[in-house]
Design a protein around this nucleic acid. Structure first.
Length: 918
RNA sequence: GCUCGGGUGAUGGAAUAGGUAGACAUGCAAGACUUAAAAUCUUGUGGACAGUAAUGUCCGUACGGGUUCAAUUCCCGUCCCGAGUACCA
């Protein structure tokens, strides 16, 4: 009986589906475990072998946990709203809903072939109305909330209006767009409804704000910071410019402190946590007010180096700063206006590329609050409007950017640290002893920072402040294929569509393009109104739908709420989340924010959504090359290519096996190659190779379906794990897959003699048991450490051993099959059935590890001299060190090495080594 | 620039509370079975030197130092590769 993987795999995939083997329910009697894969965006290209890497690891861990007695939630779904489907729709006219449905069907077929143990009853699609109802619901909750810094949580906005009516803004510590906003109860009560609504927008967690945002003209939409990289849109790579626009925003920045603090409790990789920390970007400093010379205005700056205030030689404002107009003198007006126009025109990419120092003097002066010195106020685009206060105090001696500016415009540079040399560059380090600094002189920098902060607060010159780099997220997209924003406008005032009218369905449109008047595509919808009021025309961004999907999986069919209390309190949060690092500053920030918001209202019972997170590395394509002699149709094998003047060409990897080119198929693959000739090495054409991103244009895409067909899903699963550590990026290389496949066949053969299934009930030998228990321990330890690749090696060692011993004993093979079932479930199910079990192996229990079968009473000690091993000595493990020493010194070999000399010292580490120091 | 990872045979990679470096697999070479192929199995495989041989000696985990009886592992410095971030005051 041969190992017929395709028959076996089809049989068991069908069985699992028919028996709902992996469907789970709340079960208070069993401990729960929640394993989640980052759900895919169903693109038109389908899955390649890189995609399932993390899914396979997650599935193995799921199956392992299940064997250990856990009730494991392991769902899958689709992040189905998004740009590519819409771009495709624009080109072809086909509705994105249709393409998305087709793509999902293809993904599902591909996933099913790999034998994942998902509970498909819980599938979610973000574009389903029953799902996006809850995305809209959460948005409206945010619209109806503000963030209270005293309570450190979101609160209903009604609470805030109540306070305004009795005490105005006095005593309120709330996250607000405009921090200077202040009014009395009287002023509030005198406002019109519209004015009140405008005022509240400054506090809402989902709000409309006029902000400098990333505008991508080519995509016709605004993008969030994480959707832009190097000044280009992540999707499509189009240029992005900074533009002040009215947009829906989420006040993510209000949660910056909690998002940062929460990281400490999470079991995430250090690098990922570090990425989030950098992105949140906490910095401690002070806000200091500088009065304008001869005026009533003032400039507030943020600085982390308040200690350098005696060295301020100029001020700089962002060109977009609102203060600029008031501070520009008549004489400078033209220059300033030109400069502002000039910076406005630059795209983000140009701004990054152009590092020249630019700026212009406003004509005004500020007064240094400590020295009363007059200092000129400049504007420059190296000051960012969006960070801090959009204004800085410049200390050229101790900040490299200020230094460059001062040098360029010939402004004074005053050093403040004893003995520092600022003739060529600034001294940025926070160390040394202060000088030229009034009452700070003689203090160490660290102490000076503390002292000056006290001084500033005591004299009312400003305040101590913590600043975050994390910005609010732009939440509207001028696109079609997304969740409609459930807001209507009554005389220009934004109002929520009532909860009981959700979901607000995505309407049909005749075209997926902006309207002639430049409105978003929803402007084309007929009757896009609520009770005859116009509805918001932009839709939500991609991250909206993915921010709470892990909660919906807990209770996917609940029509009353996002997730029911019972389900949420049982499943709580994701215990293991597996996905790529590319979501570090996007999805993983937004869903933590979203979850914390829901937690504030006790809609969920956990503050953090993902307890442990593992990043799988990217699988790169392994491209193959052929070398054509220039201006000919002769191809040279890789080893000889340097002897000729050749041109390197990508060759389709499906025509290559083990880097050997199938010459005949190569010739048949294209008319261009039909008459190709070859210069071979030892009768073969060897191809060159390189690791590159998997892409159609490199002919290096490997489809998992093809691998399943040739080797089977079990081999694919094992091989993807065997390739290397999960977290590491690595090229997909088929060269080693035969070894893994061979292992499975070897395992199969353990159960068969002469083509017949023969397993005996004979008692196992000591050796056989030892191999088994070593394997049990190894699998257990590796699973907890997420070391999947070494587990596969351990299986191979075990099977090799039993194979050598011709072991076909039930007492060994049955537990071994259970161990393997997490990795290669199909073959395990088949053998399990043959062993006489009627239930799926998924219901079996993880074999118990018994140390008694692996311990030895003797140990072979390596004997080393000065650390260099020169021999071995087998000794009783129970021996006392003194006896070991005696036995070692009596050894003939050791005597020979010593040659009569006396050892200085003998070091004995029980169970490890004996070292003799000469 | 800053932050975080990482450099081990021909290749993917094992081994770190410091203790026989190179597990496992691929590739390669030789052999067995076979009319032949596939499949399967066995053996060898870091480098240098010595020896007919069994074997032995030395070197070897990017490079240079250090700590230690003992370093791939810990510390300091240098180089290289990867990821993230970038006028964040």
């Amino acid at each position: 009986m041969e190992y017929n993987f395709s028959e076996i795999e089809q049989k068991w995939q069908k069985y699992w589906a028919e028996h709902h083997t992996f469907c789970v329910d709340v079960d208070a009697k069993r401990p729960k475990y929640y394993v989640l894969d980052m759900f895919p965006y169903p693109s038109g290209a389908g899955l390649h072998v890189g995609h399932p890497l993390g899914y396979i690891a997650g599935d193995i861990y799921t199956r392992y946990k299940r064997l250990c007695g856990f009730n494991v939630l392991h769902p899958m779904g689709y992040d189905a709203f998004g740009l590519p489907a819409e771009q495709y729709a624009i080109q072809t006219g086909q509705h994105p809903a249709v393409t998305t449905r087709n793509n999902i069907a293809r993904y599902r077929a591909q996933l099913d072939k790999i034998g994942f143990s998902y509970d498909w009853n819980r599938e979610v699609r973000t574009c389903d109305e029953a799902y996006y109802k809850w995305t809209q619901w959460a948005f409206l909750m945010m619209f109806d909330s503000y963030y209270c810094y005293d309570a450190q949580q979101a609160r209903p906005i009604a609470e805030l209006t109540g306070i305004f009516e009795t005490q105005g803004t006095k005593g309120i510590h709330a996250a607000c767009t405009d921090e200077k906003l202040a009014f009395t109860a009287g002023e509030w009560n005198a406002k019109s409804e519209k004015e009140k609504a405008d005022m509240l927008m400054n506090y809402r967690l989902a709000y409309v704000g006029e902000m400098v945002v990333n505008w991508c003209a080519a995509l016709g939409t605004v993008l969030a910071n994480d959707e832009v990289k190097d000044g280009l849109s992540v999707r499509g790579g189009f240029p992005v410019e900074q533009k002040k626009m009215k947009q829906w925003m989420l006040r993510v920045s209000a949660y910056a402190g909690r998002l940062l603090a929460g990281l400490d409790k999470l079991e995430w990789s250090d690098s990922l946590k570090e990425m989030q920390r950098n992105w949140i970007g906490r910095s401690e400093g002070a806000e200091i007010r500088f009065d304008i010379a001869g005026g009533t205005d003032s400039i507030t700056v943020f600085t982390t180096r308040a200690d350098t205030i005696f060295g301020v030689t100029f001020m700089a404002l962002a060109p977009e700063s609102e203060l600029v107009e008031a501070l520009t003198t008549a004489a400078q007006k033209q220059d300033v206006e030109n400069y502002r126009q000039q910076t406005k025109k630059k795209t983000e990419r140009e701004r990054i590329a152009d590092r020249r120092v630019t700026g212009v003097f406003t004509g005004s002066y500020a007064v240094n609050p400590l020295t009363n010195q007059r200092i000129p106020i400049w504007i420059s685009d190296y000051v960012l409007a969006g960070y801090g206060t959009g204004a800085i105090m410049a200390v050229p001696a101790h900040d490299s950017r200020d230094y460059a500016f001062a040098r360029h415009f010939d402004l004074p540079i005053v050093p403040l640290i004893e003995g520092c040399d600022v003739s060529l560059e600034s001294f940025d380090a926070k160390e040394g002893v202060m000088t030229n600094s009034g009452f700070l002189n003689g203090l160490d920098v660290k102490d000076a920072i503390v002292k000056i902060k006290q001084h500033i607060e005591a004299h009312g010159l400003g305040r101590v402040k913590v600043n975050y780099r994390l910005r609010d997220a732009a939440f509207s997209r001028q696109r079609y294929w997304g969740e409609p924003i459930p807001i209507y406008y009554n005389d220009g005032v934004a109002a929520p569509i009532p909860f009981d009218r959700l979901p607000l369905l995505l309407p049909d449109v005749d075209k997926f393009l902006p309207t002639e008047t430049g409105e978003p595509p929803l402007g084309r919808a007929k009757n896009w109104t609520y009770e005859s009021y116009p509805i918001e025309k932009s839709t939500m961004p991609g991250f909206a739908g993915s921010s709470a999907y892990y909660l919906r999986y807990m209770d996917p069919h609940n029509s009353e709420t996002l997730v029911g209390k019972e389900a949420n309190e049982y499943w709580r949060s994701v215990d293991l989340y597996i996905g790529g690092t590319e979501h570090a500053t996007g999805h993983l920030i937004y869903s933590r924010f979203w979850n914390k918001f829901l937690f504030d209202y006790r809609r969920v019972c956990e503050d953090e959504p993902f307890r442990k997170l593992v990043n799988q590395g990217m699988i790169l394509g392994r491209s193959n090359f052929v070398y054509r002699i220039k201006n000919s149709s002769t191809f040279v094998s890789a080893g000889l290519k340097d002897c000729y003047d050749t041109q390197e060409l990508h060759v389709d990897v499906t025509l290559v096996g083990n880097d050997r080119l199938d010459v005949e198929r190569f010739k048949a693959s294209s008319p261009d190659y039909a008459r190709a000739e070859f210069i071979l090495e030892q009768g073969e054409y060897i191809c060159g190779w390189a690791a590159e991103k998997m892409s159609k244009s490199y002919f290096n895409v490997v489809n998992p379906d093809a691998v399943c067909e040739q080797y089977g899903a079990d081999t694919l699963r094992l091989y993807e794990m065997f390739l290397g550590p999960l977290e590491q990026s690595k090229p997909w290389d088929m060269n080693g897959i035969d070894g893994v496949h061979r292992f499975l066949r070897k395992f199969w053969r353990l159960f068969h003699t002469n083509d017949a299934f023969t397993v005996t009930d004979e008692a196992p030998s000591k050796k056989e048991l030892k191999a088994l228990h070593k394997l049990i321990k190894k699998v257990q330890d590796d699973m907890e450490a997420f070391s999947f690749n070494t587990t596969v090696s351990a299986f191979m060692i075990g099977v090799n051993e039993w194979s050598d011993l011709k072991c076909n004993k039930r007492a060994i093979l049955e537990p071994a099959t259970i161990l393997l079932s997490a990795y290669a479930p199909h073959i395990a199910e088949e053998l399990w059935e043959k062993l006489g079990h009627s239930q799926s192996i998924a219901c079996a229990a993880f074999p118990a590890y018994d140390e008694a079968h692996t311990v030895e009473n003797t140990f072979t000690y390596p004997v080393s001299f000065n650390g260099k091993v020169r021999g071995k000595k087998e000794l009783d493990l129970g021996l006392a060190p003194a006896d070991i020493e005696k036995a070692v010194l009596a050894d003939e070999q050791v005597q020979k090495q010593l040659a009569g000399a006396l050892p200085k010292k003998i070091i004995i580490v029980p169970g490890k080594i004996i070292n003799i120091v000469l």
